[in-house]
């Protein structure tokens, strides 16, 4: 995983697509086709990209993680925090593909989203580049274990 996000300004394509991805912390090629719903993904054995809505049960996807290269988690409003749990559950289950936060993604949620395992961000409205970089770097250290495998403050205290 790269430390500095790359700014993806080119690329035009399908669905909820790479061209809307403003920040990406991965070096592999983005999936260049649209996503399907969780239900469709469970029925359809060839889908490689899926989109989770807040009310979906993320754990339904766990049997299919091997074949998924992109999971989008939609935040219809920033105040709906279910997507944070969805992200962690996916990472805890060993998902290593792209995990993309889409929708009402704002500067002030970026650092928490990152900690929960999101490695790509496609906000509805593009974010101020500088403010976003500052947000990603807000916390030198963190108290809790999460999906980012950072050493926590309690761990650092007892090294």
């Amino acid at each position: 995983m790269v430390d500095k996000p790359t700014f993806d300004s080119e690329a035009g394509s399908l669905g909820a697509s790479p061209d809307e991805v403003q920040f990406r912390f991965r070096e592999d090629e983005p999936v260049d086709h649209g996503t399907v719903t969780v239900d469709a993904c469970c029925d359809q054995t060839n889908a490689t990209a899926v989109r989770i809505e807040p009310g979906d049960d993320t754990r339904q996807l766990l049997p299919f993680l091997d074949r998924l290269a992109l999971i989008e988690v939609n935040f219809p409003t920033f105040a709906d925090g279910r997507g944070y749990s969805a992200a962690r559950i996916l990472r805890e289950a060993g998902y290593i593909g792209e995990l993309r936060a889409v929708g009402d993604v704002l500067v002030d949620q970026l650092s928490h989203m990152r900690r929960c395992g999101f490695d790509a961000f496609a906000p509805d409205r593009p974010l101020d580049e500088e403010a976003a970089q500052r947000a990603f770097a807000t916390w030198d250290n963190v108290y809790q274990n999460a999906a980012d495998a950072r050493r926590t403050i309690p761990e650092l205290r007892h090294e």
């Binding site: 709906d80 925090g81 944070y84 928490h112 989203m113 809790q144 309690p154």
Partner: peptide, 13 residues
């Protein structure tokens, strides 16, 4: 400490 800036539980219902 655990609950301060908890990344998953900052936008609870």
């Amino acid at each position: 400490q655990w609950s301060s800036f908890h990344p998953e539980f900052t936008y609870l219902p």
